[in-house]
């Protein structure tokens, strides 16, 4: 563990190696993931609005639908569902790519050319995912709330004014940054799991498949653990 930490710290210090690679990974891991995040957010917003209406009808004012959609999407479902989807997309992508490089000796070739694989392969992906997950989550939160709003106006007996009243009622700035901080940590964990499982891949296609599966499972587990951790620390 000590050796691993030392190696990771040294890799972080190789700024000239990983910095030029970050932008490319931000596009591949981040920008290309926005459609799937938006898709999930739309349906989350719709279901939340309908569910809130079902729970609150006859018990609480219906404008509370806005409060529930806003709070839940910003603080929990936006970051966590986006994180889970990206654990599949990003985590699997990283593990498969690095795993294939490992079993085809490309990682060894990198080393013989004087590159530390952690500096060249792991750090830029972890940095890119850490920076891009909050951006993707912000998109997802915006779209999720919008979907809840549109659903409330069109399918429920609720006006835009009432929905926005509920949305503003319990809103705190912390609701937003809490979700974004969580998503940054999810990004780091998913990219790290994918990279480490990929580097540990052995054998051939079967080894890469196994590494990919493990990366996705570990990424999802990490999201749940971090979600609980941030709730304990920040709430």
């Amino acid at each position: 563990m000590g050796r691993w930490t030392l190696g990771a710290t040294r890799a972080l210090g190789d700024v000239s190696i990983w910095r030029p690679l970050v932008i490319g990974h931000m596009r591949r891991l981040g920008v290309d993931s926005i459609p799937i995040a938006i898709f999930i957010a739309i349906f989350t917003g719709i279901v939340l609005a309908l569910l809130a209406s079902y729970i609150f009808t006859g018990a609480m004012p219906l404008y509370m639908v806005g409060a529930l959609v806003g709070k839940t999407v910003m603080m929990e479902l936006g970051p966590v569902l986006t994180g889970m989807a990206l654990a599949g997309r990003v985590g699997a992508n990283i593990a498969a790519e690095i795993g294939t490089m490992r079993v085809t000796e490309q990682v060894d070739a990198l080393e013989t050319l004087g590159y530390d694989p952690r500096s060249y392969l792991v750090v830029p992906r972890v940095v890119a995912a850490t920076l891009m997950f909050p951006v993707i989550t912000a998109f997802a939160v915006a779209v999720g709330v919008l979907a809840g709003w549109v659903t409330s106006v069109n399918l429920l007996d609720l006006s835009s004014v009432e929905f926005l009243k509920g949305l503003r009622l319990f809103y705190h700035f912390k609701d937003l940054w809490f979700g974004l901080v969580k998503s940054a940590s999810f990004g780091a964990a998913i990219a790290l799991m994918g990279s480490l499982r990929g580097l540990a891949a052995r054998g051939g296609a079967e080894g890469v498949g196994e590494a990919t599966t493990r990366a996705v499972v570990l990424g999802c587990e990490a999201i749940l653990v971090l979600d609980a951790f941030w709730a304990v620390v920040l709430l």
Binding site: T104, E105, A109
Partner: peptide
């Protein structure tokens, strides 16, 4: 890293970065 700057390695299956 310094040692490897003096050694070239040709891999069995080339190991080119695809």
């Amino acid at each position: 890293t310094a040692l490897r700057s003096r050694i070239g390695y040709v891999f069995q299956f080339a190991a080119l970065f695809d």
